[in-house]
């Protein structure tokens, strides 16, 4: 009988993670952010009635989101240590995934009632699009070692309070009836007005939730950018090494 040492068995089941095998988390986050940027633009078009909720692009993005989430989770869980930076990477990926989930939910909600969003909601959607684009630029700048990533992070963080200001301008359901009437070219019934008002209220809530997630990802990006800048001053750290330093 051949005795196999336990350590050998463990190594065969789960090989130790070497530096070369550490996933490129920045690239993974960048891919995920690109998906959310495309999704936010598409949902903006859906809300404006320029794109169908049954669009193939939306279905493609939904598949893409699932693929990325599966791959990202597997990558994070492939590193067994209790590294604090992994918590930040995991939080970022989760926040981006939840933002995407709420964007899909927003598009699906629109399918039920073809009422165009009011002015406040349209502006809020633009703020969300800009916030996710800022994050995308921020991650690209972080990867290139640019300290400007911090400013892009600030833009994403600021989107949450900006959205609150827009929301205070619009009163839930205030012009839902007019929006519905304008979109159908005929007056809305009281029941339809009430339903449209609830949909708008839900839309405001969704957009606020997305901005909250993006602001959280922005706070982490800002922290990474500051640490990279501090380390760059001492010439001790590259962007790729930052995430698992």
């Amino acid at each position: 009988m051949t005795n196999i040492a336990l350590a050998q068995v463990v190594r065969r089941v789960r090989p130790p993670v070497r530096a070369a095998e550490v996933p490129d988390f920045l690239a993974m986050i960048d891919q995920q952010t690109t998906m959310v940027v495309n999704l936010a633009r598409l949902v903006g078009e859906v809300l404006q009635g320029k794109e169908s909720t049954h669009s193939l692009r939306l279905l493609d993005l939904e598949q893409r989101r699932e693929e990325l989430q599966r791959r990202n989770q597997a990558a994070v869980h492939s590193l067994p240590d209790r590294h604090a930076r992994l918590d930040e990477i995991h939080w970022t990926m989760s926040a981006l995934d939840r933002a995407a989930a709420v964007l899909f939910q927003t598009a699906r909600g629109f399918q039920q009632l073809r009422s165009t969003p009011d002015e406040a909601a349209s502006q809020m959607m633009l703020v969300v699009q800009k916030a996710i684009e800022s994050l995308q630029q921020g991650y690209a700048q972080l990867a290139s070692g640019s300290p400007a990533a911090e400013f892009e992070a600030d833009a994403a963080i600021g989107s949450e309070s900006a959205l609150s200001s827009y929301r205070s301008l619009g009163w839930p359901g205030s012009d839902a009836g007019q929006s519905l009437a304008a979109s159908r070219n005929q007056a809305a019934t009281p029941a339809e007005r009430s339903f449209a008002g609830r949909w708008l209220d839900e839309l405001y809530g969704n957009l606020n939730n997305i901005a909250h997630e993006l602001a959280g990802a922005g706070a982490i990006l800002k922290s990474w950018s500051r640490q990279l800048s501090a380390a760059a001053m001492a010439r001790t750290l590259s962007p790729q090494k930052l995430l698992l330093s």
Binding site: H77, R82, A84, D87, H90, W91, R98
Partner: peptide, 21 residues
């Protein structure tokens, strides 16, 4: 439902078996 979502968000934002989890 919102409260359930918020609780789920808190639970899934952190890695299981990590310090923050």
């Amino acid at each position: 439902r919102t409260l359930d979502d918020m609780q789920q968000t808190l639970e899934t934002s952190v890695r299981p078996n990590s310090v923050f989890g």
